[in-house]
Design a binder for these strands. Structure first.
Lengths: 230, 230
DNA sequence: CAGTGGTCTAGACCACGGA
DNA sequence: CCGTGGTCTAGACCACTGT
């Protein structure tokens, strides 16, 4: 066994932990520790430690001193705050994008939508659809020209995936989300700045509403009230 | 010598490095290394390493593989991007604050302004004035009720301080900044959401304009073109 | 008062960069 | 080919937890 992958270990560990959180392999309420994690990855504690630190600044975990590493519950307030932040960033981004977007960008956006259309409703493709949604958002952010937008989005995207990973198996809602995206692209084509912003706002407002509905409807299949595991 | 301060070492190191960057003790273009820093702080490299990692995600340094830790130049694009991000966040924040702000909050805002008035123009108090500006912003962000806003702001505030630390010794411009803040408080008092947002936008637009002017006017006293030191 | 979790030290290792 | 910078390991230490 020789070393082939030269990406830093801390980075790979970060990804693995992140995935297990946002795709709900580890449920909210779970408490971990540096030591356990290090053992499970067959490494020493330092790279784990650094990954943890990263995840903490991203807000995906909470380190409770002398207790352990907690995967926090999803709070309604959290959903609202993050949705709002994403909304204002993406609205501004799409408004700027109107003036900067190239025909080729439009083409790529449409391609993403077309691909998503094929997958919507197919349960095995949920993650694929989510990934396409991310591609869509990222492309628009790139068109805005503001690098910070992309960075912030990347930082908090994990939360959004975590939220939506239990939403996107709802076919109707998913369809509405992608329909709004179509409207956004249409607005971009028409170079209608106001409309683009409006539709983007609608997109996030609806998204927030759906997320809150699910959160409050309580039990779907993952215990919302008490999710404790070890 | 017994250990009294129980804040993590990495945190203190982070602060020290951060301060040296944003207050321009270390100029843009400087290249450092983990080892040097560790020696200068009389610690091992691990806590330094973690501080570096933190500063990197904040964007205050750039790690160049096998070369060292670079303190990047201030780019105009950077100023524009960050100003824009802060603008949209603070605009939304102040608009929400209109409906949530308490009389006591208003009082505190006015107190901050009054205190700043005393210091403006006094060169020895530059950092004090900057600190008051931060307090002002933070208070409004808090009133907005969105915790993410505060978090993002905290993350990128370092950059803004770095930018403004060479701006704020300009008395006139500083005065304009604080006058706008007075207008913002007035709008909050009148519960005029639209006006508050407008003034906040004005605040950041002007701020951006000033920063770019200075950046482009080139040489003030700190070498803008070539700042190399070791 | 043992156990566990968090922090830091010392040092090994490896890859790359620059004489 | 040596120096240097980045990464990871092993392990010591100390504070707090929960019996």
């Amino acid at each position: 066994m020789y070393r082939v992958d030269h990406t830093p270990l801390r980075y790979r560990i970060h990804q693995k932990i992140r995935d297990k959180i946002i795709y709900k392999v580890w449920k909210s309420g779970t408490i971990l520790s540096e030591g356990e994690l290090a053992k499970s990855f067959n490494t020493s504690r330092t790279p784990v430690r650094e990954a943890i630190r990263q995840l903490e600044t991203e807000g995906l975990i909470r380190v409770i001193p002398k207790k352990g590493i907690l995967i926090p519950e999803i709070e309604d307030k959290e959903i609202e705050d993050i949705s709002e932040l994403l909304e204002i960033i993406h609205c501004r981004a799409v408004e700027k994008a109107v003036e900067k977007v190239s025909p080729k960008d439009i083409e790529r956006l449409e391609k993403i939508i077309a691909e998503a259309d094929n997958y919507i409703g197919k349960k095995t493709k949920i993650n694929k659809v989510i990934a396409l949604g991310i591609q869509f958002s990222e492309l628009i952010l790139k068109c805005s020209g503001n690098k910070r937008f992309l960075e912030i989005d990347k930082q908090i995207r994990g939360h959004m995936i975590r939220f939506t990973s239990e939403l996107c198996d709802d076919e109707d809602r998913s369809k509405i989300g992608w329909n709004t995206r179509k409207e956004i692209v249409a607005a971009l084509k028409k170079k209608d700045k106001r409309l683009a912003g409006l539709k983007m706002r609608k997109h996030y407002q609806k998204g927030k509403k759906f997320l809150l509905e699910i959160s409050n409807s309580g039990s779907k299949r993952s215990a919302k009230k008490r999710g404790r595991s070890k």
